[in-house]
Computed example of a mutant assay.
Amino acid sequence: MNDYPIMIRDVPEEERPRERLINKGSHSLSNQELLAIILRTGTMNESVLQVAQRLLQHFEGLRLLKNASIEELTAIKGIGTAKAIQILASLELGQRIMQLHPDEKYAIRSPEEGANYVMEELRFLTQEHFVAAYLNTKNEVIHKQTVFIGSLNASIVHPREVFNEAIRRSANSVICFHNHPSGDPSPSREDIEVTKRLAESGRLLGIDLLDHIVIGDKQYVSLKEKGYI
């Protein structure tokens, strides 16, 4: 039995991650192979592919890896500070790209369009974020702002925090979003109370609350569709 590790140089050239990316495109690579390219080198006893696989196993895939700290990464054998920085920088760049929107204003005319607008920004967050999107008369987003971070509560998410900015921006309407870190977007009693309070305040000010959308992991619930607005 051969106990020597399989190094990248032992892998046929056409099967190496970099060559596969060049010849077949980045979409054809596994998470392990993409991570191996970022890491560049392995250790004396492991190939870079083996280190990449061990890293993914430790963090149970990309979801937990995304939130890893420098200290957590460097605690893993074969990951020094330089490699940890490369990993975190790559993940952050990918996250920022996912949050980009075209230069023209983004129009929200349905709950699905609203959910798509914030899904990649909110679905992986480990704390609840309450976000307001301010729209003009064409339902185009003119401003987006994180109003509150933490567990949702009607006494904490005050209407003035939402509608002061709407008045300042001369917004015609508002759509609110918040995420459930559990991944389940089913609205809680607090979610419903906050929604009703915001809708009532909006009516008094003449600024419609068009929807309050709860974001889960690739799922959403529109409280407008549920009849709470």
Rank of each mutant, 00 (worst) to 15 (best):
Q86T: 01
I70Q: 07
M1F: 11
Y4C: 03
Q127F: 14
H143F: 10
N153V: 00
I192N: 12
V48D: 03
S30L: 14
H143D: 07
G25I: 15
D217A: 07
R20F: 09
R96A: 09
G114E: 04
G114K: 01
D3T: 14
L35E: 05
S155P: 00
Q127M: 09
L204S: 14
K66W: 08
H129P: 00
S28L: 05
I207D: 11
L223H: 02
D208W: 01
I207A: 10
G114H: 07
E104A: 11
R169L: 14
T81E: 13
R109F: 11
A84F: 11
E200H: 04
L88Y: 06
L39S: 04
K24V: 05
S110D: 13
Q53K: 15
K144V: 12
E140K: 07
V11A: 04
E225N: 05
E165I: 15
D191G: 03
K144Y: 01
V147L: 15
F163I: 02
E15I: 05
A133R: 09
Q145C: 05
Y134S: 03
E14M: 12
N67K: 15
R96L: 13
E161R: 03
N2W: 06
S155D: 11
L21K: 06
E112Y: 10
T195W: 07
P111S: 12
E14T: 14
